[in-house]
Design a protein around this nucleic acid. Structure first.
Lengths: 331, 331
DNA sequence: AAAATGTTTGAAATCGATTGCAGTCCCGTG
DNA sequence: CACGGGACTGCAATCGATTTCAAACATTTT
């Protein structure tokens, strides 16, 4: 009442006529305390409006209560849903989700370093396959680290991801089934693991057909450029598989502007199944990623690692063909 | 070298032959330490690979180094860019951005309570105008709290936001200039402040024209529903102002599916200017919100509040008409 | 030469909760 | 009746960095 600041554990203890240890036990391990004492303490807690000080507890327990997610580009709507699922799962387990963009001005490296520190986060979920891990894990004591969505070839980190190869396979198999034998692929950045896996799947399903690669980077602009390239070709592929929905949208819109339409003039299939594409006209056929699930699974895996459990090296989620209106039989 | 854990401040001190106080000063206030000593300490810091323990510092300094952003729906891509700008600005000031969704299963209330605690966050940015503030600020010592994007009518909280009224005005004025006298508006949730402000602006620009309100909630589904309602009308408005780009997209696509086109059969204007809409065909005319800027400004305001400075009660950002292809003269 | 001022540094208290250890009390058993 | 064993509870150490205060020394000033 006289105190300017808020009640501390010791204040509650004084109020209840017990020691601070007892109050602490009531709050975190009630079974150890006699019922009568417990009641008294709880009453004192209510009366004083006590709220625990997190810094103090974290210091003592050597943990932070935070998990950090490192995202290559927060501006990309694709990640929102993933973070959503992740945040919910973590909150349920009493952890906070810290989010940081790896593409800070100073470059990826600095951001990563900043969080590779057990006093800052209890665990790290890396959604960016291009962070330079450098001499990681060298004697330092790092918080548990896993990758989600993307991954890092050669690094021994648990992975949570879509079966991207299968996604690529399904997409192209679908186009093949429709009779397409020359298929265009609008790719991701050259070194990107998603690009490679999806492309490998696409190639596997090609079965002797022909594949033309349009360079891309998952962005809207790349989709438009691909459309220009496609139109300039003498021998156009009759179907195009874009490795992201945004590229597929921009590709389709560019063609529409030129008076061409899917699937009449070209079949188009995307990847991700972001909300918007099912509301376009024509609605985009695409490969769905269970985004919220990926986030949820990633959260589960990092929590398990934080508790010291062993986890599967790879958690694979299944892609799914969302058959809509932009693919049709080869003309 | 023998220690299993990592170097502490006192370890560095021993290594450098000074006291822990001195090391602390070198790290946080180098000017106070003699150059020679400083060098020695820095060398010891390098040699030991010392990294500060955040929990300890936070406990001592009575701060957390975190700012939390409470978002109504992380799954909405609109917020990604805002959080992006916010995160960058905060990181530059040495703060981490904690993100939480207010729509947790247990409802808005719990999430807010959880973070209304100075030992958890140094400041809070509320992006949800519907949180129940209840008996807020009653004697408790809360961390500084501001609202961004949305706001809470009647609450005395600093606001960072677009001039939504002006945005609504610009949109409808544009349609009026094109000769439209009957204008449809696809709205947001009834109680929503954005809905009210934009609608008020729209009405102000109406100048005797007629306005038909289609209920909505900013979602894609609402846009589609509005399209159905529009088509069912005997006396259709020749222009439609959707209070979000997603609704505008879905509205437009639904009409396209029915063989109608913008701006030939109806003019459409959206709100937000999310990336995708400029890549559609036809490209959507819309009111742009400077999303990254809003995030950045919100970060600046909360930082100022954390430092105890007074801040402007309202920080208003200017909307801008992005003239594209979906609006045209009244038929 | 004495006093006043300034510069560096260290000792120790502090932030607030947790927990190992030991003491107290009460009960049941031999 | 004495003793072993539980059940509770409190003392005090601990987590690791920051900061106040004062000591120790150097540098001016009168």
């Amino acid at each position: 009442m006289a105190m300017p600041g808020r009640a501390r554990l010791s204040d509650v203890a004084r109020l209840a006529g017990v020691s601070a240890s007892t109050v602490s036990r009531v709050l975190s391990n009630p079974g150890l305390v006699a019922p009568a004492t417990r009641e008294a303490v709880l009453a004192a807690v209510m009366a004083s409006g006590y709220r625990m000080n997190h810094a103090a507890r974290n210091l003592r327990k050597q943990r932070t209560g935070c998990v950090v997610a490192l995202v290559p580009n927060l501006g990309n709507p694709f990640f929102a849903k993933i973070l959503d699922g992740m945040g919910r799962e973590l909150a349920a387990a009493g952890y906070d989700l810290l989010i940081a963009d790896t593409l800070e001005d100073a470059g990826r490296h600095r951001t990563l370093e900043r969080f590779l520190d057990p006093s800052r986060a209890d665990g790290i979920i890396l959604l960016d396959g291009l962070v330079p891990l450098g001499r990681l894990g060298q004697g330092q004591d790092l918080p548990p680290l896993i990758t989600a969505c993307e991954w890092i070839e050669g690094a021994d980190l648990p992975r949570v991801m879509l079966d991207n190869r299968e996604g690529g396979r399904i997409a192209v198999a679908h186009l093949r089934d429709l009779g397409h034998r020359h298929i265009g692929v609008i790719g991701g950045p050259a070194g990107n693991v998603l690009h490679q896996a999806r492309l490998a799947g696409a190639r596997a399903a090609l079965a002797g057909g022909r594949l033309t690669l349009f360079p891309g980077d998952f962005s809207l602009a790349a989709g438009r450029k691909a459309a220009e390239a496609w139109q300039a070709m003498p021998d156009r592929p009759g179907a195009v598989f874009a490795l992201s929905d945004e590229m597929a949208c921009a590709f389709m819109a560019s063609l529409q502007r030129a008076g061409l339409a899917a699937p009449r003039d070209v079949s188009i299939i995307g990847f991700d199944d972001i909300d918007l594409v099912s509301h376009l006209s024509p609605a985009l056929t695409t490969i769905r990623q269970p985004k919220r699930d990926i986030g949820r699974q990633a959260a589960r895996v990092i929590l398990a690692r934080i508790e010291g459990q062993e986890v599967a090296p790879v958690t694979l989620l299944a892609p799914r063909l969302m058959l809509r209106e932009t693919t049709g039989p080869a003309g």
